[in-house]
């Protein structure tokens, strides 16, 4: 279990304990992305293994570090979830079961599928999600409802594909990473999950606040398509 965390001292302990309760056999790794609060201390106290980045590198780098750790530890399955308590640890089996059954290489916990329970997503964020869902679905020729979810399950193949991305997104590995995996024959599956509002009030991604996210992601998607032509 990989939990990238930046200044999530208030919630990371609860998330780690929640994961331990659901999957006692799993190795829980918190990637502390240069937090300035007690995130590392709280995570360690809750029983997580810690990877401490020397300074704040961005969500993508923290996630990539966790994935690198999983690959070097020869993990069979990896589940990434946010440290802010948005994702429900009790739903981890929903992501792992299709991986165990060999039905998918990459399982996305979706907040927009029928059957999912989701907090009231702000209109701007919903619009951005819809836009990227449309773009990705058109390129992939199949519907992907939630391209921005951080709740993902990967098997060793998807892990290898993710880590083979040369310019792994630094801040927001979302639709671009998903498209990259899909274009490399990763079987993608969406499952409905419960998504709570960010309980600390300050999202690690912070993309909804940024107008820069939309053009950056569109260019990144174009870059993924372009890289295949080389």
């Amino acid at each position: 279990m990989i939990i990238p965390a930046y200044n999530e001292a208030a919630s990371v302990g609860r998330v780690v304990r929640g994961v331990h309760a659901v999957c006692p056999e799993a190795r829980v790794v918190v990637v502390n992305d240069g937090s300035t609060d007690g995130t590392a201390r709280e995570a360690a106290r809750a029983g997580a293994a810690l990877i401490d980045l020397p300074f704040n590198c961005g969500y993508g780098v923290a996630l990539q570090t966790g994935l690198l750790h999983a690959q070097r530890s020869r993990a069979d399955f990896v589940v990434a979830l946010d440290a802010d308590g948005q994702h429900e640890p009790a739903e981890i089996p929903k992501l792992v079961e299709p991986l165990r059954a060999g039905a998918a290489d990459l399982v996305l916990g979706s907040r927009y599928l029928p059957g999912s329970l989701c907090y009231r997503v702000p209109r701007a964020r919903r619009l951005v999600s819809w836009l990227f869902s449309l773009v990705v679905s058109l390129i992939m020729r199949r519907t992907i409802r939630d391209t921005t979810t951080g709740f993902q399950g990967l098997n060793a193949r998807a892990l290898q594909v993710y880590l083979s991305m040369k310019d792994f997104p630094e801040t927001s590995p979302d639709a671009d990473l998903l498209l990259y995996a899909y274009r490399r024959q990763c079987r993608v599956l969406e499952v409905p999950v419960t998504m709570h509002a960010d309980q600390t009030g300050d999202s690690m991604h912070g993309y909804a606040k940024s107008f820069f996210y939309v053009p950056k992601m569109l260019i990144s998607l174009f870059g993924v398509l372009l890289a295949e032509r080389r």
Binding site: A49, D52, L53, V61, Q64, T65, L68
Partner: peptide
């Protein structure tokens, strides 16, 4: 890019 790789390696080695 080099800085990112270095910081990741440092973090992983420390862990």
């Amino acid at each position: 890019e080099r800085c990112r790789k270095l910081s990741q390696e440092i973090a992983l080695l420390k862990a």
